[in-house]
Amino acid sequence: MEAVSLNSLLWVGAVLFVCGVICMTTKRNAIGVLIGVELVLNGANLNFVAFSRYSPLALDGQVAAIFVIVLAAAEAAVALAIAMNFYNCHLSIDVDRGDELHG
């Protein structure tokens, strides 16, 4: 099997990143926004893993990826809790409804 080149992996990561960003910016649903965040994080993770294979980064990249997964989980948990709280207050998780604080 021909080895996948680093660039291909990075392209996938970049696509994930861009998708994530677009998702974050366009979704009105809080959950959707969080999904976007996850996509971005995973794009980065993919980079780490890819680099661990093709660059002197070696194992450090994989360790980093693992840590990122953990942190992403923690963050997601907190974010969901906060979204719940928001829902409790606003009866909606449409992020556009949160517009009391401005100016």
């Binding site: 990075l10 990561g13 990143f17 994530g20 960003v21 974050m24 809080a30 926004v33 969080l34 976007g36 965040v37 971005v40 994080l41 794009g43 980065a44 993770n45 980079n47 780490f48 890819a50 680099f51 093709y54 660059s55 980064l57 450090d60 990249g61 980093a64 990122v68 963050e75 907190v78 974010a79 906060i82 979204a83 709280n85 928001f86 409790n88 207050c89 606003h90 992020v95 949160g98 009391e100 604080l101």
Partner: peptide
């Protein structure tokens, strides 16, 4: 207000963290 502030903070923070992480991954690589 408090819940709204937290949601904004978390979304914004997570987004920023994501961007940064992506940058870190590139840098490290």
């Amino acid at each position: 207000q408090s819940s709204e502030a937290a949601l904004k903070y978390v979304v914004y923070g997570a987004g920023a963290a994501g961007v940064m992480l992506y940058g870190l991954s590139l840098l490290a690589g």
